Amino acid sequence: METAPPVYSNIELICQGAEARLFRCLYFGRRAILKERFVKTYRHPDLDSAITVQRLKGEVRLLTRAKQLGIHTPSIYHIDWTRRTIVMEDLNDARTVKSVIDTLIQEQNTVKLEELAQQIGATIGRLHQAQIVHGDLTTSNMLLTENGQLYLIDFGLSAYIPNKTQMLEALAVDLYVLERAIICTHQKAKHFFSNILMAYKSSISDEKQRTLTMNKYEEVRSRGRKRSMVG
């Protein structure tokens, strides 16, 4: 009697973070990425399972919502609630934006750097205008394909924020996290974040939201500077 082939095979560990492991695999013969969330042994098993399923559902929901907004995100192939896994598209021809920026700096290609910054700003603006916070905006969580399409990845900390007051704080923190990541990682990319911010503001059609978000962002930056001075 023949047995059905496994859903995925040829599993190879890529990296491991605080919340999950990433593997490269074959899904019905197609190259794919397998994301597996860890079991938290310090929590009661039933509670841990419930929290993990809730977070998986949130991640899948917001990945899908972002795609509906016209933002490039990996396509989802399979979800296994019991095994805590998501199988998604492997963008194997793509590079991290972190790597792309480093190359463009070496080449002194300021035109391409500015174009990339504008693309990032417009993409984040589209996400934020829908009241979605990514939660971990770094240039390592953005991919650029060979044909120039920008993808946002790793929505594990993302959230939809319906409350306006909480939303403004969350959007501002999202921007500040990206600013700090760029300053720390791409010190030679002058004006890169300011170009992102210009494109971001241009992409927010709601003038009130744009103004309130920028005001809150400056407030968050000010708090961040004070913490740095205190040590």
Rank of each mutant, 00 (worst) to 15 (best):
R43A: 02
V177L: 15
S202P: 00
T139R: 01
L69T: 00
T213S: 11
N215Y: 09
Y176A: 09
A181L: 01
N109S: 10
Q68C: 04
L212R: 09
S202G: 01
L34D: 08
T103E: 15
C15Y: 14
Q187R: 15
T185L: 10
L143N: 01
A117C: 03
K98S: 11
E12I: 12
V133S: 08
A18R: 12
Y27E: 04
D102N: 13
A20I: 06
Q129C: 04
T185R: 02
F155I: 04
L212T: 04
I196Y: 01
R43Y: 05
K164G: 00
E36S: 12
I120T: 07
Q16N: 10
I105M: 09
L116F: 00
Y27I: 03
I161T: 08
G231D: 08
L171N: 07
V100E: 12
K190H: 12
R43Q: 07
S228M: 13
F23Q: 06
R95G: 02
K188D: 15
R225D: 11
R227H: 12
L197D: 00
A18T: 13
N10M: 05
L63H: 06
E169V: 13
C184L: 15
L212Y: 10
F193A: 02
S140E: 12
Q131Y: 15
G231I: 13
L56M: 15
T139G: 01
S99E: 15
F38K: 13
K112M: 05
D102Q: 11
G224Y: 10
Q54S: 12
I105W: 00
L144W: 05
I86T: 08
C25I: 07
D48F: 03
V100T: 15
V230R: 14
G156V: 05
Q187M: 06
R43W: 03
N92H: 14
I196F: 04
H44R: 11
Q149A: 13
Q129T: 09
V7T: 14
L56N: 05
I182R: 00
E169M: 10
A18P: 08
G121M: 03
I124H: 06
